[in-house]
Design a protein around this nucleic acid. Sequence first.
DNA 1: ATTTAAGCGAGACGGTACGTCTTGTCTTGAG
DNA 2: CTCAAGACAAGACGTACCGTCTCGCTTAAAT
Lengths: 190, 190, 190, 190
Amino acid sequence: MAVAGRPRSDESHKAILQAAYDLLAEGGLAGFTFERVAARAGVSRSTIYRWWPNKGALAMESTLGSLTAELRISPDLSPIENIHLRLRRVAEAMKGPTGRIIAGMLAEGQQDPDTITSFTEGYLEPARGTMRALLRQAIDEGYLPADFDVETAMDVSFGSLYHQLMLRRSLEADWVERLTHFMFGRALLR
Amino acid sequence: MAVAGRPRSDESHKAILQAAYDLLAEGGLAGFTFERVAARAGVSRSTIYRWWPNKGALAMESTLGSLTAELRISPDLSPIENIHLRLRRVAEAMKGPTGRIIAGMLAEGQQDPDTITSFTEGYLEPARGTMRALLRQAIDEGYLPADFDVETAMDVSFGSLYHQLMLRRSLEADWVERLTHFMFGRALLR
Amino acid sequence: MAVAGRPRSDESHKAILQAAYDLLAEGGLAGFTFERVAARAGVSRSTIYRWWPNKGALAMESTLGSLTAELRISPDLSPIENIHLRLRRVAEAMKGPTGRIIAGMLAEGQQDPDTITSFTEGYLEPARGTMRALLRQAIDEGYLPADFDVETAMDVSFGSLYHQLMLRRSLEADWVERLTHFMFGRALLR
Amino acid sequence: MAVAGRPRSDESHKAILQAAYDLLAEGGLAGFTFERVAARAGVSRSTIYRWWPNKGALAMESTLGSLTAELRISPDLSPIENIHLRLRRVAEAMKGPTGRIIAGMLAEGQQDPDTITSFTEGYLEPARGTMRALLRQAIDEGYLPADFDVETAMDVSFGSLYHQLMLRRSLEADWVERLTHFMFGRALLR
DNA sequence: ATTTAAGCGAGACGGTACGTCTTGTCTTGAG
DNA sequence: CTCAAGACAAGACGTACCGTCTCGCTTAAAT
């Protein structure tokens, strides 16, 4: 049952998200301003304020879509190999604009807890869900021992990866490989 | 041999660092302003600009002293236990104001790479140095296999710990214990 | 047909002009600061910057109104007497706050030519217009010779008067009287 | 009888005056700063503060020498012609850097009365002295009537000339000629 | 057909902080 | 006693954003 009043402009909505994404990709958190987003989107500032309470929320929404795309599983690989592949892809993505955006959101979140919540719910938990399933499968199929600590494994893998990102340290393929070896042992990766 | 010119006021210097530390401890990065630091320290703003190029540098210097205090080794414990103890202490410290400050600096560093450099050189590398020594000792004394990947172990331990911090997730003792178990295996912790 | 956007606050506008006038009247150019004007007007600094490009412009606008008031002609006096009266009144006004303001604007104009332009167009030219009319009338009515140099007479009268002002020299009635005698000859002043 | 202590550096003294003069000539009052004078003179700021109480005094002293140079009388001309010549030369000088400096000092004097005093005593009164002598000579020799108001004539000539300068109006030769005509009548100038 | 209820642009407003600049004072060490 | 060097408190500068606000216009559902 539609409410009275002029409906929300889908055009503006999209333009804002796109402008926000572009700005974040270009300069990270610095230079990410409501004013600039509005200017680039060709939209009035108040329209942004009407729909997003703060920069974190806007940054989140403008980014989430593009983040979840790469979460795909190859059924012809072993669970451990699948995990390795996923980590490698995520690391790869983090080297580009997506990485700047995520780092920016984690940074923004230090001032505004809501951003952390959105980030966790919107991106991290889904990612952990897939990873969790893979780890459980690995246990079920005997690749990992029954008492393998799944949750900690995820804290470790995501944690070290994103920390690496924030410190602007290496996210190259061999770093990911060493990480996987460290977590699972060399034997499990053909 | 002192240089010409009025010498730097040690009093102001200390007052600035103290005020900066207090502000960071109180409100984290938000509300950490040169203006407020100056006001609280009873110092003119230009004096701060004269000595610190940006907020990150000031935040760093105001915190480093209190950070390095806790880097002490108990010689009567095994290397693994020492590592565990260190991680627990660091995690404990991160729950208080120090944690907010470090999270703030990592956040600030996303806009200003110099802050990351200062953080790495001033705090992280020294911490890694101690940790590295302990891990090598553990290998030498047979607690860990000869091919144990020391560097990755540090990426993992510090990484997951600080990521946990930034996500405002648990830093409780049992989390640290699970982390240590995950990295070294339960057997090694008495 | 009003333009879109929040309309300019007439209240703030007036408060700014009033505060500017008061500050100028009190202390002349020294102490005339956007910051103080803002504080006294109870207005944010940016509001002033939005409407006036520099101090001179604000000083001008805050003063022009009160300046043009005194330009009135008494029809029952001879043109020469009218001129004399006008000069005496202007000189009188220059002894008060208005004088400090005008001196301040002429001073300010040495750094910023726009201030001079505003002053000339907003105040001086109108004043010269009236004076010019009186001089022409005096010629027409035979008080002054046909080849009397009207423009130079105005350069001389205004010039010596405002120079006197800037040098903080006498602006008393007898000085004005001597000036008039010098320009027109004693005979013409009853 | 020399006083104890290091003698005043004549080199610094001259460098300061020269730097001050240059800065004034280049940019007028704007950009005339103790800091810049010190920098350009290769002198410490405190040295300037030790010898000059404020900008006006420094501006004055740096300029006075070059101002009085042009006050010379040609004995083979009539007094009126000499006056005319003098005014023309002063007007000519005012079109260059000297003019900017004098205008700057008159402006500066609106904030600091001492500058006005220095200006009057150091430059204006001497100039008026010469002019006064010429006018008296003109009266004595019958070029001007015995009751010619000498002081007012000087107020008028200098006043209109310097006002013209401050308004950035014409200081061309024909303007000076019209001024002389206005004051003395056409007959007296061949 | 008219009212009502948003959405939206434009843009003013009070604030806060930025980083820079200048002022006038002070403190040191060297001449 | 002078001078260079330079630190210091104070405070204004002009700019950039913030979050809020007031308008007038537009768009659609409800009356």
